[in-house]
Amino acid sequence: MNAKEQYCAFRAIVDKEVTRILRIWMQTLLPSAITMTLYFIIFGKFIGSQVRDINGFSYMQFIVPGIIMLSVITNSFTNVVSAFFSAKFQKSIEELLVSPTPNYIIILGYAAGGVFRGLLVGIIVLLVSLLFFTQLHIYNLAIVIAFILLTSIVFSLGGLLNAIFAKRFDDIAIVPTFVLMPLTYLGGVFYSIKLLPEFWQAVSLFNPILYMVNGFRYGFLGISDINIWIGLGMLIIFAVILFYANLYLIKKGVGLRA
């Protein structure tokens, strides 16, 4: 396939995903907007009003970047894992497997779908927070974009990896429930790790989501519990590893070809 044909194949996958995401917006976009609004009300308003400022920012301002990141992570991952696994389950993935579409285009197409949904939900949550709950100024736009985009890519690729291995619908719920959710909640969305005892601060540093949340928060507020460059480097390494892992598995036909 030449470059133009590859672009057509990529567009076909992305168009299909975007159409699907927008068609079932009640399942793909609305739930996160409602859940995150509840977080703003309960944690930001009710509890946050009793919490002192953190590094000169109100508790609401402190949690907004983390909550946006939480929705981006969840939606990017969930989108790809459910779309790809559904395609496997309905066998419509065969449409792609019998075509000359290169494997890396399949990965990029599905990842782009995950990034689209992750960022769209992130923007919706940001708008909800700005319209109803707080004011935010952007400290460094490039950092905001780099962190949100890379995080979305990493979790989209992670969702694809999960879907490749999944054999049943149960298998696509395990990672979000038992890995992503705990790591995200313990990744500094609602608190600064400086508030934790030293031991737990050290333990928290092994949680990759801490770096993503703090890097993104730095882009808005200019404060972070970690070195953001380590976070950025980590995201790039994760993205590269996950991309090649997916490429290897699809080439081998794991979970796809008998």
């Binding site: 396939m1 133009k4 044909e5 194949a9 567009r11 996958i13 168009d15 449409e95 579409t101």
Partner: peptide, 13 residues
Amino acid sequence: DIVVQQAGYYGIP
């Protein structure tokens, strides 16, 4: 859409 997408997978504009 199903038919058009399939054409896309073969690089057809």
